[in-house]
Write a protein that binds this DNA or RNA. Structure first.
Length: 994
DNA sequence: ACGGCCACTTA
DNA sequence: GTAAGTGGCCGTC
């Protein structure tokens, strides 16, 4: 590297004959990003529009110089970048640049590539922690000018205008505009030497420099021209005639002084690379071409080859230069156009691919080749570093910045992120290069003796986190984790908000939902052919289970660093699959953004009334005891009612009742269905059993168990949502599962009443009405259903009316009930068998209903047949937003299994599309509430329902916002041909809000 | 201690 | 007939 070759004192000082060009990297990047169409991509689908633009601009500048004039060539040249968001200015004024929006999602991964590009062109690439690019530019410009050299700043940033002087010029090459004293005067109304004074008064809304209220550029220039500088003005502010202006200058004098500090560029940055080292390097053609080939910039590659005389063919694209995205082998493994799915489309999308690109690699091949090459590198869990010094930790963070990405994993004392304590964390920057940072390991043996102190040699937790925080929050470093929601939630409790990020679990889920689990161990075996050290081997299980803080450091390092290493490798393999499988949009809109949304919902939790639950448990126990006595009396003996086996023996053996069905293990079935049938025949015992079971369920699963989930610190219940657990895209909830809180029976709703709002707040429940049937009406394009939804009709009554020809008014409730069961059946991939069971009718009769239904709604049958064809042909089906649900075994020869997968495949697009809509609403919800200055907090999701906690006074204003976001969740990606309807209510408890 | 099975809760 | 999670029982390790 150029920087490394330089020494502090080997280069001669600059002279009047020298010319230093300083390029403001940020200006280049943002111009390149916005000037070029976002489609410009290299063959594997990585957004590289900004990299491409940057390379072209840099190349043009290197070739053509600043102006057409001769003799303007630089002797010294560097591109200067911002290192990270936080600088010394934030210490002076925390709000500085605080409200600056995040850079676009697809630009973030390009920051690192652009630095690579700069080096590939043998150009000095300068950045320094704690300083903005502007400060480095200012310091270099001053130093060079002091030596007598000429300096040209290439930038469009007005903040740099204060540097303009006799020796220092500024030019915006992209706009072909030269800034001299005249231009500065035009912009600020003063010369370059007074720019700072004017800026400190006028402030800057973009950078959040406050200035003095009521004073803009015009007034500021007027005042400075009159008084000379800020201090003089402030000292004589009392003499100003205009009342408001005088008062503001006096009141906000200190704010103006702070502003002056903020806008004043540092001229004395202790630069790591001396200005004398910034001499122009001879371009290394092969190096530049290697990079450009990696990027797939064919036109520029050829141009550089022509100019430098390097041999285009002999230079290989750089392997691993840009892990995550690079082209592993540019020459071999070519794919004929159209051979791989989306091949031609991919070639078209890759805008920079020049003519003759039939042989260009398509994403599919890139991803496959990547998987092979990563798999070939063995995992060695004995080769990892244990980090025990802050210096080494800083070096790891620097390595992450250099790369632009880092795999990250935490080790803690609990699987529950709300209760876990951080024990250590691991990082990985390359396959095989990983470390573990132990922070809170204790001596496990001594614990028994009452000792158990911290093991010596570990970094102090706070100091280590201070080093890590800037990197973990650095927008130019992509953090890669497996199941990030856990780490995000944990780290948020330590004041760190991780971002930007990728999640390998979600990547796997996005491309492979339905193909198996998405846990790290399973993914490692699937993709790397490597079995990671099992957690059990480190911490034991069952009674011998120890927490991770008791694990000795060497074992902890092997286990933890391996996790980060494996995560990084999985990312290197799975990320390219997004492009290969055309799933990038699903991942970026429906998966990745859910992580912080769910983490915050889990962190908030919900209040439950412990006393109410305790009373309920007592009531249920009493009811059960009464029933138990009656049951034993009727049975003529005592037995365990909770044992289906014993119950079966009593009912069908001893009492000789007609046992209908058996379970698949051959035992008597004692399901409600069977017991209800017996009850209908006049037997007393079965209905008592059903009642007992209901109470037993309510007691054990809810009233007894829920209080145990109350977090002692927050006093609330924090469920955990699984993002990658279902085949269809639904979430699941566990520990406790808050998606199956009873609602159907009066007794059950007492449980729901125990979910309450905080004092001064209400719970709002907002649920979609018939979302799945609406989605079906849209997808299968059913005119009658669409019209019914448009007209706000009772959809089940309408279905009954269509099927049986009876008018909706005065309809027999039983007729409607049948239609309702059919509607649900349709969503579930109807079968005569299932419908017969549901309605208690014969299979023949059920078959007739289905036949009639399909005659009335032929579009539904078409949809079902089409879906079956698709799943057999592709092995997966898709939702309206492109999510895939795989059914790899649908082509089995077992007719029952085959029919089961077909029904699941019919259901998945319906259930999954509804789930997608919910996700879209959730991703947008928080921002929309905040934008409306509302304090509603989203707490729970129950498939078609969202629950919020809202201050009493805001209920009226909040409901319309929630409804609007939910009802318009498809916008702007998709126009649903059916309206979505959301019902919302507020109350003090969940039961009444629902 | 673990896992399969059954039953029951939700959308 | 779809999609989930939990608790109790009971056999196996």
């Amino acid at each position: 590297m150029i920087r490394a070759m330089s020494t502090q004192d080997s280069s001669p000082a600059l002279t009047a004959n020298d010319h230093l060009i300083l390029v403001d990297g940020s200006t280049f990047i943002f111009r390149a990003y916005h000037a070029l169409p976002p489609l410009t991509r290299k063959p594997d689908g990585l957004p590289v529009g900004a990299v491409s633009g940057f390379c072209n601009m840099l190349w043009k500048l290197l070739q053509e110089g600043l102006t057409p004039e001769e003799g303007d060539e630089p002797t010294h040249f560097a591109v200067i970048f911002d290192h990270s968001a936080k600088t010394f200015r934030n210490d002076i004024y925390p709000e500085y640049k605080a409200q600056r929006p995040e850079p676009p999602e697809d630009l973030v991964p390009q920051f690192g590539l652009i630095r690579e590009a700069t080096r590939a062109f043998s150009v000095h690439c300068i950045e320094q922690e704690g300083f903005e690019a502007d400060d480095l530019i200012a310091t270099y410009a001053r130093q060079a000018a002091d030596m007598g050299a000429r300096v040209t700043i290439v930038s469009g940033d007005k903040d740099l205008m204060q540097l303009i002087g006799p020796k220092v010029g500024m030019i915006d090459t992209m706009k072909n505009k030269i800034f001299g004293e005249a231009e500065v005067f035009e912009k600020f109304g003063v010369g370059p030497d007074k720019v700072i004074e004017v800026q400190s008064l006028a402030g800057d809304s973009v950078d959040n420099v406050p200035g003095v209220p009521g004073i803009g550029l015009k007034t500021a220039a007027l005042l400075i021209n009159e008084f000379g500088d800020l201090e003089t003005l402030l000292a004589r502010a009392g003499t100003i005639k205009q009342n408001k202006r005088r008062e503001n200058l006096i009141e906000f004098a200190e704010q103006a002084r702070v502003s002056r500090e903020l806008v004043t560029l540092k001229l004395d940055v202790p630069v790591e690379v001396p200005v004398t080292d910034l001499f122009v390097n001879h371009i290394d053609g092969a190096k530049a071409i290697s990079f450009l080939k990696t990027m797939g910039f064919n036109t520029l590659t050829r141009r550089v080859a022509e100019t430098t005389g390097a041999d285009l063919e002999s230079v290989e694209a750089a392997e691993f230069q840009v892990p995550g995205w690079d082209v592993p082998d540019h020459k071999g493994r070519m794919v004929e156009r159209g051979e791989a799915p989306g091949g031609a489309e991919a070639a078209k999308a890759a805008g920079d691919l020049s003519p003759g690109n039939e042989g260009m690699m398509v994403p599919q091949t890139v991803a496959d080749a990547r998987a092979e090459s990563i798999k070939a590198i063995p995992v060695d869990s004995s080769a990892y570093e244990t980090v025990t010094s802050l210096d080494r930790l800083r070096e790891w963070c620097d390595a992450a910045r250099e790369k632009g990405y880092v795999a990250f994993d935490t080790e803690t004392t609990s699987l529950d992120a709300m209760q876990a304590d951080l024990v250590g964390l691991s990082l990985a920057t390359e396959p095989g290069k990983a470390c573990y940072v132990p922070l809170a390991h204790v001596d496990g043996e001594a614990d028994l003796l009452g000792g158990g102190g911290l093991i010596a040699g570990q970094l102090p937790l706070r100091e280590a986190l201070e080093v890590l925080k800037p990197m973990l929050e650095d927008r130019s470093v992509l953090k890669v984790a497996q199941n990030l929601k856990y780490d995000w939630l944990l780290m948020s409790r330590y004041g760190i908000e991780i971002g930007p990020y990728d999640d390998t679990m979600l990547l796997s889920y996005t491309v492979d939902a339905g193909k198996g689990g998405n846990g790290m161990d399973e993914l490692s075996e699937r993709w790397l052919g490597h079995k990671p050290i099992p957690f059990k081997e480190i911490c034991g299980s069952g009674k011998s289970l120890i927490t991770f803080d008791k694990v000795p450091l060497d074992k902890a390092t092997a286990y933890a660093a391996e996790d980060a290493d494996v995560t990084l490798r999985l990312w290197l393999i799975l990320k390219p699959r997004l492009a290969a499988d055309r799933m990038a949009t699903v991942y970026e809109t429906l998966e990745r953004p859910m992580v912080p949304v769910l983490a915050r919902m889990e962190r908030r939790g919900i209040s439950v009334d412990r006393q109410m639950l305790s009373r309920l448990s007592g009531d249920f126990a009493q009811g059960m005891a009464g029933l138990e006595a009656e049951i034993h009396e009727l049975a003529g003996q005592s037995f365990n009612i909770g044992s289906p086996k014993q119950l079966g023996d009593i009912l069908f053996g001893k009492m000789g009742l007609p046992g209908g069905k058996k379970t698949k293990t051959g035992a008597w079935s004692t399901s409600v269905q069977v017991l209800d049938d017996l009850a209908a025949e006049g037997h007393l015992l079965p209905s008592k059993i059903v009642a007992w079971r209901q109470l037993s369920k309510l007691k054990s699963t809810y009233s007894d168990a829920l209080p145990g989930y109350i977090n002692p610190e927050t006093g609330r219940v924090h469920t955990s949502y699984a993002l990658a657990a279902t085949t269809t895209g639904r979430l699941s909830s566990s520990e406790p599962n808050l998606q199956n809180i009873p609602v159907r029976t009066e007794e059950g709703r007492k449980i729901r009443k125990a979910f309450i709002s905080e004092k001064g707040h209400k719970l709002i429940s907002a649920d979609y009405s018939q979302i799945e049937l609406r989605v079906l009406a849209h997808m299968a394009d059913i005119p009658q259903l669409k019209k019914a939804f448009d007209d706000g009709l009772d959809i089940h009554a309408m279905t009954a009316s269509e099927m049986f020809g009876t008018p909706i008014e005065g309809m027999d409730p039983m007729v409607r009930r049948r239609a309702k069961a059919i509607n649900f059946g349709i969503i579930y991939g109807i079968s005569a068998f299932g419908l017969a069971n549901q309605l208690g009718i014969s299979r023949g009769e059920a078959g007739d209903y289905i036949k009639t239904y399909f005659e009335r709604f032929p579009g539904i049958r078409d949809y079902m047949e089409e879906t079956k064809k698709l799943v057999h042909a592709n092995g997966y089906v898709t939702t309206i937003f492109g999510r895939k649900a795989h059914y790899p075994e649908v082509n089995t020869n077992n007719p029952n299994h085959r029919a089961f997968y077909e029904r699941a495949a019919i259901n998945a697009p319906i259930q999954g599309s509804a789930a997608d809509i919910l996700r879209r609403a959730m991703v947008r919800m928080e921002q929309r509430l905040q934008g409306s200055k509302l304090n509603a907090q989203m707490l729970l999701q129950v498939h078609d329902e969202l629950i919020f906690e809202v201050p009493d006074g805001e209920v009226e204003d909040t409901i319309p916002v929630i409804r609007h976001v939910m009802e318009n969740a498809c916008d702007p990606a998709l126009k649903l041909s059916v309206p979505l309807q959301v019902d919302a209510r507020a109350a003090d408890n969940w039961d009444e809000a629902h």
